[in-house]
Structure formats: C-alpha cells, structure tokens
Design a protein around this nucleic acid. Structure first.
Length: 429
RNA sequence: GUGGCUGUAGCUCAGCGGUUAGAGUUCCGGAUUGUGACUCCGGAGGUCGUCGGUUCGAAUCCGAUCAGCCACCCCA
C-alpha cells in the first residue's frame, strides 16, 4: 500500500449511514420553506475576496484569519465563509430585489479556517434564508415562527431556546459603542487579555465574556437597551408582541451580539445545551444597511442561517433517539433474492417490470449471486421489510416468494400480478 | 493561534519492558443440499500514527512530529 492520503483537517466525510438523517433534515426544511412561499437560489461557492471583506467586516475574525483565500491570476478569490454576502451580491447583480420583495433560501457548504471541535468544522453546511424589501417586524416574526415550526416538525422544539436582542439603529449602536469603549478604557486594568483585544475589534463582545473575573466590570457597564433609538425600540416591542401572539417563547439576552458587522436591530439565536460549547443551532437578524453597502439601492433585509452539522448532531445524539427518526423512507421496501443462473436472469427482468408498474417502489435486486442464506442475510441488512424470493422451483411454477423480514409469518407465494397488488398496498401505507 | 486528553484489526477497546500482539464487533464460509435477526464452529483482517533515542530486548520508557477529540478564542 502507498502512503495514505487523508481528508484535510476539519473536512468531514458524510457517510452512507449518516446521509438518511441529512436528507430527512434537508427535506423537512425544504417542506417548511415551500409552505411559507420562499424560493431557492443557488449560489457559487467562490466569490471575490472583496465581497466578504466589505460585508462581513475587515476586522472580524472571519475575514482576518479564517478565510480560504487564493489568488487566481490577478484576482483574489475566497471560498465563502457564510452565505449572506453571496446572496446579496447575486440579488443585486441580477436585479431581483430592485424595488420588490424577495424571500429566498440557499443551501450548501461554507468554509472557515478555524480549529475544529464538536459541532464546528472547516467545511460545514448551512441552510440560509434571506428576505429583501421588508422593513417591518412582521417579517422578523415570520422568520422566527418558520424556524419554530421547523423545530416542532423535527421534534426539537423542547431542546432549543430562542434568544432575542436588538442592536438598535447603526447610529444608536455606534453612539453606544463609544460610551462602552470609554467606560472600558477607564477600567482598562480590570480587562482580561481577550477583552483588551475586543476593545478594538468588537467591544460589544466584552459584555459576553465567560471570565468570572470580568463579572463586576460587566455589571456596571452601560446597557445597549438603555441607548436604543425610538424606532428600534418600537420595532422590537412589536416583534416580541407578534411572537407572543404566535405562541413562541423567547428569552431576551442583552449580551447577544452577532459577530458579523452587518447586523442591526433584530438579532436572534436558537441555542441548545446538548451540543457542548457550540450551542448555537440557528442564528440571524436584520441587516438593513448591507445591500447599499455592497453597491445596491438601499433595501431592508433580514435573514438567518442554520448549521446542519449541529442539527444532525442534535437529531442523532442530542435530543431525539435515532429510532424515532423516520429513516425507513430511505431503505428499500423489498430486497430481491434470486438463486441460480436462470432465476437471476429472470429476476433482473422481473425487477425492471415491477419498477415500471410501481414507480414509487424501492426495490433492491441482489447482485453478485450467493446462496439463499447469504442473500436473505443481505436482505435483512438492507433494512427492507420484505424479501422477494425467486429460486428454481418458483421459476418453474411462475410464482414469487415473499418473506416478511420485520415480523413473524410464513413465506407467501404470489403470481406477478398478485405481487404487484400486494406491493402497491404496502407502498401506500 | 493557546491549552488538556488520546492514537493498537474496518469499528469499539484490552495489553503498558520479555515467546509468534489479543477480545468483542463487522465481513466471508460452515453447522441447516433453498431462507435473516438467537446459538455454536472456522476463516479473513495489524508496517501497535510516523521518525528518532534509551535498552540484550520497545506496542510498552523518553523526545520530536503528524493526526483525532474536547475546550478557549470565534462562530452555524
């Protein structure tokens, strides 16, 4: 054997044993988005580096040290570290948000060069939703109601908590930031190393420090909620009222600050305590200034993204037991056992006819021969409910055997027509 | 970028200076000339992460390196 080549750090294979969970999750999300009238947009994975610098912010961790950037001729390109920037770029470039409302979603891999840990990988997958052209709290509420419905459908609602905050208008926030920075500079000696760094990069983050030595300083710090502009306060109050009417409970977390520069007003996160340190499963907020900032006409916008790895983890080991997931929809209904040369040939043809007659039938035909024992074993392992059996004697009698693999009962014998009827009934149920 | 823990069969792990490195599981075959999930038997499967050092002797001790996991930072 030659030297092994392994997957690059932080980039995980999603194995066949896992893909049914992924499909279940993705299909459920798509179903909910369809139900609310959102349209899919498919976006490139590579964008110009400048796009991310301008939208995410030059001094954020993402842009400073986490981007996969490479030179292509005289252009600097970057593997997208998040989806919003590309979506906004595409929306402007194609004129689809010019003076009109758009409700969009996208899906796919994102790349950040971070140290991997539980629920965090260098290539990870998100489904993102972005709405353009609506400035009221009603759309903020709809997005949150939509996610709440999704958690309910996935059986996750009782394992996640909605945290909510408002960052106010850009003006109010930057005024507040100055006050906070001034306060921190006054008590600079009390700041830990991380917070001194945050003072320049993201001062609002200081309030979210996990260091207990900082608790005192944080206690006495000025509060963003006390510095809100009136329209933002009104927006936030209406949003919370709508959520209450919609039956979604929330916790106001004044320390909730999204990491990306473009957020303002509403921000929210769905968090869980079941995934260790990476508890955020879905997060988003309003970014009314971004479209203009990237070169479009001033357009209000709001959106969120959910991390699929984290949701899959939550589904498989965090909250729902794996046996509760409806994964049988991804295993074959029936596994076709055919022993002997003539039966094998006949089975290949018969399997094709069955698939033609029953388009929704999932039928796996045994390949690679093998005795009855081996083939029945494979049938069992495939997860199929039934084994179809064709040996020399069935072939001679023009019958097909049907053996239930999931419950007791004798093997039955069907003609082809009877078998189609029977399977049709099984598929329907 | 920083810290802690861990690298032995495809997977989960035992062995922690002394024959030819083990178990469970998985896979294949048999017990049962044509029938799975339980049982029994057999077979296949290992450069003990890599490189170097100590030693008569290293999976075992030491160093370096690489990788994985978890946490910090940050984030979905």
């Amino acid at each position: 054997m030659s030297a092994k080549i392994q997957a690059v750090r932080g980039m995980k294979d999603i194995l066949p044993e896992q893909t049914p969970v992924w499909r279940y999750l993705e299909e459920t999300v798509r179903g909910v988005l369809d139900a609310y009238g959102y349209w899919e947009i498919r976006l490139p994975i590579v964008e110009s580096t400048e796009l991310f610098k301008r939208s995410i912010g030059e001094v954020t961790d993402i842009v400073e040290k986490e981007m996969y950037t490479f030179q292509d001729g005289d252009e600097s390109l970057t593997l997208r570290p998040e989806g919003t920037a590309g979506c906004v770029r595409a929306a402007i470039e194609n004129g689809i948000i010019h003076n009109q409302v758009r409700k969009l979603w996208y899906q796919g891999p994102m790349f950040r060069h971070e140290r991997p840990q539980k629920g965090r990988y260098r290539q990870f997958h998100q489904i993102g939703v972005e709405v353009f052209g609506l400035s009221g709290p009603d759309i903020d509420a709809e997005l949150i109601l939509l996610t709440a419905r999704l958690w309910r459908q996935l059986g996750l609602l009782e394992h996640v908590q909605l945290q909510l905050n408002t960052l106010g208008s850009a003006e109010a926030r930057s005024a507040y930031r100055e006050k906070l920075v001034a306060y921190c500079r006054e008590r600079f000696a009390e700041l830990d190393e991380d917070s001194r760094r945050r003072l320049d990069s993201n001062p609002l983050r200081i309030l979210d420090s996990k260091n207990p030595a900082m608790a005192d300083l944080i206690q006495g710090a000025p509060q963003l909620l006390d510095h809100l502009d009136e329209p933002s306060r009104e927006h936030f109050e209406q949003l919370t009222r709508l959520l209450e009417m919609g039956g979604v409970s929330y916790v106001i977390n004044p320390r909730l600050v999204r990491g990306l520069d473009y957020y303002g007003r509403t921000v929210f996160e769905w968090v869980t305590d079941r995934l260790g340190a990476q508890g955020t499963v879905c997060a988003g907020g309003r970014y009314d200034g971004l479209v203009e900032h990237i070169g479009g006409r001033s357009t209000p916008a709001v959106g969120f993204a959910m991390g699929l790895e984290r949701l899959v983890l939550l589904l498989t080991e965090g909250a729902v037991s794996r046996t509760e997931l409806p994964l049988e929809r991804y295993t074959p209904h029936a596994y076709f056992v055919a022993v002997g040369e003539a039966p094998e040939r006949a089975a290949l043809v018969l399997a094709e006819r069955l698939r033609s007659s029953l388009p929704r039938l999932r039928l796996e035909l045994n390949m690679g021969s093998g005795g009855f024992k081996a083939q029945i074993k494979r049938a069992d392992k495939s997860g199929a409910r039934f084994a179809l059996v064709l040996g020399e004697s069935e072939l001679a009698e023009g019958q097909i055997g049907l053996k239930s693999l999931r419950e007791e009962g004798d093997q039955r014998s069907f003609s082809e027509a009877e078998l189609i009827d029977f399977l049709a009934g099984q598929i329907a149920s």
